[in-house]
């Protein structure tokens, strides 16, 4: 069982690693340019472990914003994970509560996405191994970027950036083929987010929160009013 969980976790973790590594290299390079030490750059990625907000923090440091403002911005940017963890807390049935402490640390957009469309049981081994492969990509990329600088060709870096979106789409495809309702909800959510981003009225990270709240509510209304077969996930 454990071996199978590990194998599955690596299979799901490789695409996340491929997407995280080049982004983290960019973070390491930018951190150095901003005047952050190697230890601090490492700690940013190893202790905070939150992609977009780390880049935003570097920008805010450069503009001279104080730590309180940066921490509050971080809270806003990462609050979507509250909704993602809420969903995962209904899926992961862990009897020893202490395991939630490391599991919660590893919740990112990508680990959440892989976990939520995993049809087999979300065991402790599978969840933690998947999260660790994402984490190792992020931390090792940060160190490589700081120490080696721009060692990866720009074309390769940008191409590897596509991996994260391809991963999300590949995870979603089986569900979209199976359920017209899911297809409708996913497309609506993307279009709504596009509109919100283009309007540029919400702080970073909040357009996704608004989309989740509105589209998942719509999903709930559709489910309750038009019952359909129990979904394979959840």
């Amino acid at each position: 069982m454990k071996k199978q969980d590990l194998r599955r976790a690596v299979r799901g973790g490789i695409p996340i690693f491929i997407g995280y590594f080049p982004a983290a290299v960019a973070f390491g390079i930018l951190a150095k340019a901003t005047g952050v030490t190697l230890l601090e750059a490492f700690l940013f990625s190893a202790v905070v472990f939150a992609g977009a907000s780390q880049f935003i923090a570097l920008n805010l440091i450069a503009t001279g914003m104080g730590p309180v403002g940066i921490v509050l911005t971080t809270l806003l940017v990462n609050f979507r994970h509250f909704l993602m963890s809420t969903y995962l807390s209904t899926r992961i049935k862990e009897k020893a509560k202490a395991w939630y402490i490391p599991m919660a640390f590893g919740v990112t957009d990508e680990t959440f996405s892989v976990l939520s469309f995993t049809t087999h049981e979300l065991t402790r081994t599978f969840v933690l191994a998947l999260e660790f492969s994402a984490y190792s990509g992020w931390v090792s990329g940060t160190l490589s970027g700081f120490l080696l600088g721009g060692f990866m060709p720009e074309v390769l870096t940008q191409s590897m950036g596509v991996a994260l979106y391809a991963l999300l789409l590949a995870i979603l495809m089986p569900e979209l083929k199976k359920s017209v309702r899911s297809l409708f909800l996913a497309v609506s959510s993307g279009l709504l987010n596009w509109l919100l981003v283009a309007m540029d009225v919400l702080p970073t990270g909040w357009s996704i929160i608004v989309c989740i709240l509105i589209i998942a509510s719509l999903g709930a209304v559709l489910t309750v009013s038009i019952p359909q077969k129990e979904e394979a996930h959840g």
């Binding site: 909704l83 959440f112 909800l185 609506s188």
Partner: peptide, 9 residues
């Protein structure tokens, strides 16, 4: 249950 589809979109 609708959160994953909404979030990933």
């Amino acid at each position: 249950k609708s959160i994953p589809v909404a979030a990933i979109g």
